[in-house]
Amino acid sequence: MSQQRRLTGPKKYVAVVLAVLFILLIWQAAAWSLPDFLMPGIPTVLERMQAAVQEAQFREGLLGSMSRLGSGYSFALLFGIGFGLVGGVLFFFREILRSAIVILQSIPSIAWVPLFLIVMGFGNLPIIVVVALAAFFPMALSVMNATESVQPVHVSAARVMGASRWQLLRRVYLPAVMPELITGAQLAFGNAWRALISAEMLIGFGQGLGRSLAYSGEIADMTGVMMNILVIAILATLIDQVVLEKFKQRVLRYQYV
């Protein structure tokens, strides 16, 4: 390996901490310069959060949001990876899929809500489908593009060793696309998360995070608004930077040695 281009260890943590401090500073500065009922300060919001976490209703809402995210996101991962791999190998299918994705991706996922709401009815399902849709496109695209650029010599070598089609997918294509697959999964998570919150705000089902945020806004409870935004930011960061990042370092261990 040539020069180390990644920041690792303590330096990286310092950078993250500085970024967090910077965001909090801007928030607190806004709170100092605006009246309290418009922009509550950090301590007030933290107090509210502590209280909310102890309420059963809030916890249930949170759990509902997470399960909708989980179902939609894992559905998108599964199909994104599947379609991406198959699309990368069969190149006629690939062009069809790519064109379809390019067209469909230009539609903001939230724009589907009225349609799904009427077709599927008021409930979990339309939110899950919107989340899955939002996450599927980046997932399938990145896996497909990566599959396309798998080195021919890696494929030939496995064929020479007698690999079946399934073994080729499982033992060559899948590990070869893993770096892009994980990047795609992180991108897809961002999309899924945004879709989840906006769909919940719009549909207003199940007391989830989005619903709770929208409701706080409706009754002009700014502490509630900021508290929900804070929870949204904390959860997303935890999932992306801790869960997905750890998974990445584990699966791509060979890149880090």
Binding site: S156, M161, L252
Partner: peptide, 28 residues
Amino acid sequence: PSRTLVFQEHALYPWLSLQANVAMALEL
């Protein structure tokens, strides 16, 4: 598998250890 080919270079799998690379010929 009775007719095998050795390539110029870069034909080992970068995500597998040397041992796993060699073992893969049998695992397949």
